[in-house]
Design a protein around this nucleic acid. Structure first.
Lengths: 158, 158
DNA sequence: CGGAATTCCCACCCTCGGGCTAGGAATTCC
DNA sequence: GGAATTCCTAGCCCGAGGGTGGGAATTCCG
């Protein structure tokens, strides 16, 4: 259930770009240094983001990357799908990257049923939150801001 | 963001065990055949589930695996954590398997902030739903039971 | 015009873990 | 005693995740 580094780095870089202000182009080196990300790997990622129409580039000296279009129309989900493929926990519940899974009959598969719910819960966030929203977040220091995981924090093993 | 085969197979097997009724022990071969899972791989998984106290075994002929304890007290989340480790999308938001991530300051990390929400949304399901709940589900044929992904179904690429 | 700063492109590497298999020892039932 | 099991240890394979390297093409600036 983990997010790949690819997406993690990509989203960090995009956040930086959005925060740099509309139309600002930032060179790869700066992007990498400021967010301490491996430069060459980030280059790959940015290439994909470009192919996906999420960023644009300007060549040559004083060139760099900039958000293409309005960041408030680009969802986090879209970015992750572009970089990683499916978002759904199981291939058989993926809307855009469907593939059959091991159960004999999907229509009566209990596991699929739960994962459908999980998918919807995560998509409700990731397809709703845009790059603008992301960049506007200030972060929270706590591990359990809503105080709903007291047991886990206490070290109990449920 | 994908669930591993390990967990997928494990949960399928557990569902089968719960449905077989309390106290029933089922041999590995049967478990594998009925759910068409690779037997030897499943054996490994069952071993882990045993170490984790989720199933018990009886040796020898007519032996097999059975749920240990009350399946309505075993959450899906617990099973996945046992088989796969962290459930959280990022190490830095994991309650039980915390590890720092690449951002300079977690307290002000925007990405972490979103992923905190994603974690809570999925845990709300996975730590709430028990094996009993899982076994009781009948499955749904549709891909979008709540009708909230019309665009994606239509093939639009947001 | 020349050099510096960039993106672009291609090729390659390498480790690690997911997913799976083999085979035999130990246990228990009939 | 033999059949059916779990237990245990070992190993395999490969693909993907996560990176590196180096050079060509483009553009700015003095």
């Amino acid at each position: 259930m983990r997010l790949s580094r690819r997406s993690e780095y990509g989203l960090r870089a995009l956040t930086d770009l959005v925060r740099s202000g509309p139309g600002t182009t930032v060179p790869l080196g700066t992007l990498a240094r400021r967010n301490n990300l491996p430069p060459k790997f980030l280059e790959q990622i940015m290439a994909t983001l470009k192919r996906g129409g999420i960023v644009g580039t300007t060549l040559g000296a004083r060139g760099g990357y900039a958000i293409a279009g309005d960041p408030s129309t680009i969802s986090i989900g879209r970015v992750i799908r572009l970089l990683d493929g499916a978002l759904a926990p199981l291939g058989c519940v993926s809307l855009r990257f469907y593939e059959p899974c091991s159960c004999p009959d999907e229509a009566t598969c209990a596991l699929r049923d739960v994962m459908l719910d999980v998918r919807d819960a995560t998509l409700a966030i990731l397809d709703d939150q845009t790059l603008t929203d992301l960049a506007a977040r200030e972060g929270r220091a706590e591990m359990d801001p809503r105080g709903i995981h007291a047991e886990a924090i206490a070290g109990r093993r449920p």
